[in-house]
Nucleic acid binder design. Structure first.
Length: 585
RNA sequence: GCGCCCGUAGCUCAGUUGGAUAGAGCACCGACCUUCUAAGUCGGGGGUCGCAGGUUCGAUUCCUGCCGGGCGCGCCA
């Protein structure tokens, strides 16, 4: 149950009743009425701004309106008290049994606790990673991969029909460079000595395997042919090899795409012409001359007539070129075609997870999507800021040009998949993130992955011990569901229950905002609540979970512990992390 | 020059889409281990939410202008 949505309905019903009774005018706009958690727990369990946002329209003072609402709210069986505070807030306190019933929600729903059908099966396309197929995935790609995948998971949990998609940029000049670089390695594999990789080629060692594989397949077949003969074949071969490696790296991270879309295939199928025809039909194309960009030195700037898209009509700063001097389409034109293609596949909601260097591209693609779909599709672009790789606080040196860089695979091998995925979500996506190899594997409170996993492991340890001391039957669903949860009455226990009750709303909010980092922060808070409760048992033996002398209380506490396991495990899985059974090393 | 992102405790960052006395962790000071894992917990000090206006019952949040940091800026992808 999403408690905020639940009580939002309660408040709205009260307002309707009040309108029927003539206390307030009928037909007030209730859109801004909100029920949320107060910042300070001391203020109560929930707060509503109803009296404040409706006061003006109702022609009343906020507090007077609140006075009318309070008795009706208090009459609700799940509400203990309602009091007016500050400028007109109504603070609600809920019955303890309401909170304890949420524990039953967790136990009954298990792994699906927090899931909802809010998305109503709406189709969403999440495009992420989309790294150029010219080399292995790097540390930088890891962030986009994790963010995109977690967003997709959250959308699935909230009842959306999600497509995880990778766009292969296999149509530009960079894949020709790849092909030529692979050809060098091919000759090398045939026994030639390549002293040094010339500039303008990719120097990476990973291309040796591509050269060898081609020899294995075709022998010396291509060696003495002119470039025009071998280029298309080598390009296709090398791209396919790169994509295999990329897919396998993504697999190591636990990311599985539903679809790989090839830019080249799209272009060859005439998708660009179709998309541009769509824009033409709406009168959004013209031929003109752009002003030279200011503040940047361009020695070779020559004013030139070119095909332009009126992106300024949709909020962009300048109109954007669609055709190059040689008549071929720009990357932007292909991008429009690709987004139109996604829309044509019946995805009205598009999410693009891209690197921060795409900042300047947001306005134009947003404009293009609106234009080419006639406003029927929207795109949300999540820019992921840099990941700074550190070792004990010192930057790890990387240079893609010289071919030395830290790959995604290196990082996973070093710290594990779960750590990579969790740490990548410990900042908002638009905030730069430090990834310190020493810190992320440290077993301390300073390391959020460890802290959360430790809470889960502690819970599992208690459950294992319970099964030993009593019997496995004590942990059976029917045993835990029959627990007398009224025995859970300490502030720490109730705090933990309240936090777990918030989980469905956290999932819903994170999914709606496309902000998976909220899950990581929530899990940290939940873990803290649990560690607090745990340590109370240190001071006072009667506060431990397992009590020989009191079986009924033990069962109630085991129900609580099982719920914590369920919520933490569910939360970790939502961001693609496997919960740990134990951390003792 | 223009655009986008960011500016919150000494440091690293949250802040539930505009709410009340702005929160965590680290660092610092002081407590707690014959224990279901002390790899942890509790307490304390610490703030002009970059600055100045505006919008309104109410602004860290929205708008405008400055200041500071990052990224990007025709025919590359």
């Amino acid at each position: 149950m999403n408690i905020y949505k639940h009580f939002s309905v309660v408040v709205r019903n009260v307002l309707q009743d009040l309108a029927v009774a003539g206390g307030i005018p009928a037909g007030l706009d209730l859109a801004r009425v909100a029920v949320e958690a107060p910042r300070e727990a001391a203020h109560g369990d929930l707060a509503t701004n109803a009296a404040m946002v409706l006061a003006k329209a109702a022609g009343m003072k906020p507090r007077d309106l609140a006075e009318l609402l309070v008795p009706r709210l208090t009459a609700h069986p799940e509400i203990v008290s309602a009091e007016i505070a500050g400028p007109g807030f109504i603070n609600l306190r809920l019955t303890e049994s309401f909170w304890r019933d949420r524990l039953k929600d967790v136990l009954v729903e298990g792994a699906t606790y927090g899931d909802s059908d809010e998305g109503k099966g709406r189709r969403v396309n999440v495009e992420y990673v989309s790294a150029n197929p010219t080399g292995p995935l790097t540390a930088g790609h890891a962030r986009g991969a994790v963010v995109g995948d977690a967003i997709a998971n959250l959308l699935v949990k909230t009842g959306h029909d999600v497509c995880r998609e990778y766009y292969i940029n296999d149509a530009g000049a960079q894949v020709d460079v790849l092909a030529r670089s692979a050809f060098l390695r091919y000759r090398e594999a045939l026994g030639e000595t390549i002293a040094e990789i010339p500039s303008g080629f990719y120097p990476g060692e990973y291309l040796k395997a591509v050269g060898q594989a081609l020899v294995a397949r075709d022998g010396a077949k291509w060696r003495d042919l002119p470039e025009s003969e071998w280029l298309p074949e080598l390009r296709a071969f090398a791209v396919a090899r790169m994509m295999e490696s990329i897919e396998s790296d993504l697999g190591a991270l636990g990311v599985k795409m539903d679809r790989f879309s090839s830019e080249r295939a799209l272009v060859e199928a005439g998708a660009v012409e179709r998309a541009l025809a769509e824009l033409e039909r709406r009168g959004l194309l013209y031929t003109g001359i752009l002003e030279p960009p200011k503040g940047k030195q361009l020695d070779d700037w020559e004013p030139r007539e070119q095909l332009l898209f009126r992106s300024t009509e949709f909020g962009d700063d300048v109109d954007r070129p669609l055709a190059k001097a040689d008549g071929s389409f720009t990357y932007f034109a292909n991008d429009i075609a690709y987004h139109f293609d996604k829309f044509s596949r019946h995805y009205p909601l598009l999410i693009d997870v891209v690197g921060a260097d795409h900042g300047g591209w947001v306005k134009r693609i947003t404009a293009a999507v609106t234009a080419v779909t006639d406003g029927k599709a929207s795109v949300d672009i999540k820019l992921c800021q840099l990941v700074n790789l550190l070792q004990e606080g010192q930057p790890v040196k990387m240079s893609k040009r010289s071919g030395t860089f830290v790959t995604l695979r290196d990082i996973i091998d070093e710290v594990g998949r779960g750590v990579v995925r969790f740490i990548m979500l410990t900042r908002r996506n638009d905030q730069a993130l430090d990834f310190d190899f020493a810190k992320v594997t440290e077993q301390s409170k300073d390391n959020p992955v460890f802290y959360v996993q430790y809470a889960h492991a502690r819970c599992r340890s208690v459950l294992r011990l319970a099964a030993e001391q009593y019997s496995a039957a004590i942990l059976a669903p029917e045993s835990l569901l029959a627990a007398d949860t009224n025995r859970l009455d300490s502030p720490e226990e109730l705090d933990l229950i309240r936090r777990m009750a918030a989980w469905p709303a956290v999932v819903s909010g994170a999914a709606e905002a496309h902000e998976p980092h909220r899950i990581a922060f929530y899990l940290y808070d939940l873990a803290a609540s649990f560690h607090q409760l745990w340590s109370r048992g240190k001071d006072n033996a009667t506060l431990r979970f397992l009590l020989e002398s009191d079986r009924s209380l033990t069962i109630a506490r085991l129900a609580l512990v099982q719920s914590v396991v369920t919520v933490i495990a569910g939360g970790l899985r939502a961001i693609g992390v496997e919960p740990a059974e134990e951390l003792r090393s």
